[in-house]
Design a protein around this nucleic acid. Structure first.
Lengths: 212, 212
DNA sequence: CTTAAGTTGCACACCTGTGTGCACTTTCGT
DNA sequence: ACGAAAGTGCACACAGGTGTGCAACTTAAG
């Protein structure tokens, strides 16, 4: 499996390769969370051996990947300032989806065993934002109260994860779908969601609503 | 890691052990989809070597596990006869959850790579049932129409999977939560769900609605 | 009690993946 | 054009997991 063509390909800038590895790791791990170092290195156009020149070991690579991804995630979470809970959730979902385009995302989310704790810790700010939105929404009466705030927050996170990782990421209508899924879990009826999205067309921007 | 106390424990009936292995495999794989043969055998109170006396190889064990689980699932799906789509979905979710209590379930669902196709095939009847309910619901106007039938069916499946595998299976209120999640994705507002569950108290049976 | 099925440990071959050492080649930067 | 940085192949040691062969032991069943 490690065998490749013996042709010696021209090499690119050094530092750029490091970034390339991270990118490759993100996409590789997105489709197969247990992709081997070799697979990642090859996908980045480098040899396995070279990868070890950039990262001490598997763990180091994964950690850096998680950190990078979660920083972007947390930044997005911090940028949400809507007071209305459903609106805030909709916007948060849409931005997470589009900006950090299903790459770093899926990777950081679909990670396995030894890194779940790490990932969880790194995403704490995002999680806190969601929790705050949920709490506020319940108090304001704009979110369901049949489910405890912590549980609801968790469900919403899972719904988002579901939308992000389980749906054909390439589709243009994917964002729309993700937002609808999250708002549904949040307790809105589909008609209410429809109204909300119609009132705030900027959330889902364009996207062909046909192939939904 | 394979080392155990040299004490020779009394052994039980032969055929019963086979069932024990399947049970152990279900619970083991539920928590760790890539549990080793040794772990499973030990969990069943047998040696790794003995396990191979019951199953040709890993694949054979997994296949039998999947078949068993999906048969029960499909049987439950076939037992649903409600005409109202939301009601049908609610009952289906509740029964799947309770009857095949988070054991065979999570295992069959959380399975990995080489078995996803197999699992998918085995669960085809269940999938067909869901698709039919969705189609019927959309035609009757009792289910959301902002999402295509196939996509909605898929979303619902994923929501159910989410509820089943990502939530503390032990909690008594888990069934309630699972049903609410599915109905939410189906497009109902949380108040509509509340009403539906109140009208049909048999769906979630008892379960402490306090710790929800 | 006897027999055969069921189990057990252990050894072995084989496979995949990880991380490192080493000699050698390529290419960027100056 | 030169030297250091970066990359390549290959070999090795090591760790886990799988599936099999085998001799010896335990126990259910007749």
């Amino acid at each position: 499996m490690t065998t490749t063509a013996p042709v010696r390909r021209p090499r690119k800038d050094a530092a750029a390769n490091r970034a390339g590895i991270l990118r490759a790791a993100a996409t590789m791990l997105a489709s197969d969370p247990s992709a081997s170092i070799d697979q990642i290195a090859r996908a980045a156009g480098l040899s396995r051996r070279a990868l070890y020149g950039h990262f001490d070991d598997r763990h180091a690579l994964l950690t850096e990947l998680i950190m990078g991804g979660s920083q972007r995630f947390n930044a997005i979470a911090a940028s949400i300032d809507d007071t209305d809970a459903p609106l805030a959730l909709a916007r948060l979902t849409a931005r997470l989806w589009t900006e950090a385009a299903h790459v770093q995302i899926a990777a950081a989310l679909a990670l396995t065993e030894a890194h779940v704790e790490e990932t969880a810790a790194a995403l704490a700010p995002l999680r806190r934002t969601v929790a705050a939105i949920v709490r506020g929404g319940q108090e304001a009466g704009t979110l369901r109260t049949d489910i405890t705030a912590p549980t609801l927050a968790r469900l919403i996170e899972e719904a988002a994860r579901l939308a992000v990782s389980r749906i054909d990421a390439s589709s243009p209508a994917a964002t729309d779908l993700a937002v609808r899924a999250v708002l549904s879990i949040a307790g809105l009826s589909w008609r209410e969601t429809e109204t909300l999205l119609a009132t705030h067309p900027d959330i889902v921007a364009d996207a062909a609503r046909s192939t939904r």
